[in-house]
Design a protein around this nucleic acid. Structure first.
Lengths: 334, 334
DNA sequence: TTGAAAGCGCTAACAT
DNA sequence: ATGTTAGCGCTTTCAA
């Protein structure tokens, strides 16, 4: 059973194939009479255009590639939501690939997206393999790196200083008078590493020793992991006065574990998270955090890509720093 | 600047285009000498094959369409993770589209996927517009509907009885001796509606009156929403003895709000959630829930799709019921 | 093992 | 406003 093609529709409607093509893409350029006949034929035959053929013929794909490390973390869901909202409305397809925090998988994703001839690539993170950088730079398409600030952006870079944010969270705890302040994370991907750098910087400046609570094998941030890591620390008899968690989920898990063990937050221990996820404000006690701008990042990235695609002016490396914000709440109140 | 094509590579390597194509797709069919020359030329030119052309010429896309209602809920992230794991390993591209819980957007997604000539469609849910059903049925490709059981599956259906699960959760509360049992949800998409049906069935059988806590405008399940809805109820002075929440996030939000208000769980109120998300076991108190099998659903759907694509036997409507399980924990302990 | 010819299904460019 | 012609960049089929 052959698939229905444009020609079949044209034959049935008694017009030329290009007229059918026009009815589908720019109906206003066709007289109402023909348009109706074509529409009827399309419907009768259940015709669905072959996008691969269209892309090949027009050499436009109307597709934009997006690479994220994972879908488990809601921050990427929010970011993707914003990207979709802008790009789909503008008639683009968004092709999402996840790299599972691996630079090799990211490189493969880039190759796959370039093979699909996406018109732009939006990629979370600024650390790539040399070949990835080379492919992106040579591809002559808009590239946006997001979430972090890069020392040498490939093209456009929209992010925030993860290190400065980590430093800010740590200083918040230091200012509250704590000395035994721990840094807690499930993995050390580049963003977590930068927050860690910020933590160490703040601790060094204050003349305080580092305290690290890091999962033995990399695990994604979750409430359960926060609970596990805190338990581990507690059972070592090594509970600090304050903890900076790289993610609100970890912080929530740690708080729950405190509660089970009769350790009061913030009376006995202070906890600050990261990202200011939706639940931070309504947690009991409410959770101090660093608010980050996932939605704005996605929206801005998408808008800049559209602008670049419409302008044909070759863009140069540019950087946009989306500020973060410290949100002090009960979990670190003195 | 023209893009590099197969012909460019062929010219540089001094072979015919088809030989280059073979080196890329089935290297074993080409003599080592030529293969090396071609590989060198590919590398030198930075050649990336045009997938649209390949798809058009071969009439195979190696693409599989997946439709989910949202990426905000982690259950879909888990499901997608499993789908990816199986399908990508088998050499397929997974194209994810989200329908934002709208049947019209789902219909558009189906059209878009068919236009891309995906080789199979895996779709969360069993409620579709008549046109969607027609398109899927006529498309002569494997279709898998997931998460729910359908009275009339289009093709393969892998899911669970949401209604029975809702009934089970409710009966658990009834058995514990509660009479004022509320059903709490942020929206009534089809799955939530089915759980609601199960709740009402159980309540009717026990001769108890319904108590509904439903957001005024549809909102996605979140901790913050659970907190809001509980607050609303509490401020109406209308707090029940037990609550069945359609999602663990809602349940966690409700529990946190209880805590803030000095209402003890489970002493003053019992709460059960749904999905048994990762945090349920480590919440304080630990959260009773209904465990659902998102990962298995995705894995099985993907495996069945691969089998169908390899067998060429036309599959008939078939249904697989993945059981759920009641997980009683502290939040409903008596 | 390698290549030549033909065509996948559509659209750009150029008529009329 | 509509049609004709000529590809887009690959792969299939068939031949050598």
């Amino acid at each position: 059973m052959r698939r229905i093609t444009l020609d079949d529709v044209a034959n049935l409607a008694g017009v030329s194939p290009i007229t059918v093509s026009r009815v589908l893409r720019k109906p206003d350029a066709v007289s109402p009479g023909l348009r109706l006949r074509v529409d009827a034929a399309v419907k009768e035959l259940g015709y669905v255009p072959n996008i691969a053929a269209s892309r090949l013929a027009s050499s436009r794909t109307h597709a934009i590639g997006v690479i994220v490390p994972t879908l488990y973390n809601v921050i990427f869901a929010e970011y993707l939501f914003a990207l979709h909202e802008v790009l789909v409305a503008a008639g683009f397809q968004v092709i999402v690939v996840n790299s599972r925090y691996s630079e090799i998988e990211e490189e493969n994703a880039i190759k796959a997206l370039l093979g699909q001839r996406v018109e732009a690539i939006i990629i979370a993170g600024t650390h790539h393999t040399p070949l990835s950088r080379q492919l992106l730079a040579q591809a002559r398409l808009p590239v946006v790196e997001t979430f972090e600030l890069s020392p040498n952006p490939i093209d456009l870079n929209i992010g925030m200083s993860q290190e400065h944010a980590g430093q800010t969270a740590t200083q918040h705890l230091i200012e509250r008078g704590f000395r035994r302040i721990a840094f807690l994370t499930g993995n050390l991907d580049h963003r977590a590493q930068s927050r860690f750098d910020g933590y160490r910087l703040a601790m060094r400046e204050a003349g305080l020793p580092n305290l690290e609570i890091i999962a033995e094998r990399p695990r994604h941030s979750s409430v359960a992991l926060g609970s596990d890591l805190f338990t581990m620390t507690h059972e070592r008899g090594d509970v600090p006065e304050a903890i900076f968690c790289t993610d609100d989920n970890l912080a929530l898990g740690a708080m729950q574990e405190c509660r089970k063990r009769g350790i009061r937050v913030p009376d006995d221990i202070s906890i600050i998270g990261f990202h200011d996820l939706e639940f931070a404000a309504c947690a009991a006690p409410s959770l101090s955090s660093i608010a980050t701008r996932r939605f704005e990042t996605g929206k801005l990235a998408a808008e800049r890509v559209l602008a670049a695609l419409n302008s044909s002016v070759v863009s140069r490396a540019e950087q946009i720093d989306l500020a973060f914000a410290l949100i002090p709440r009960e979990s670190t109140a003195v």
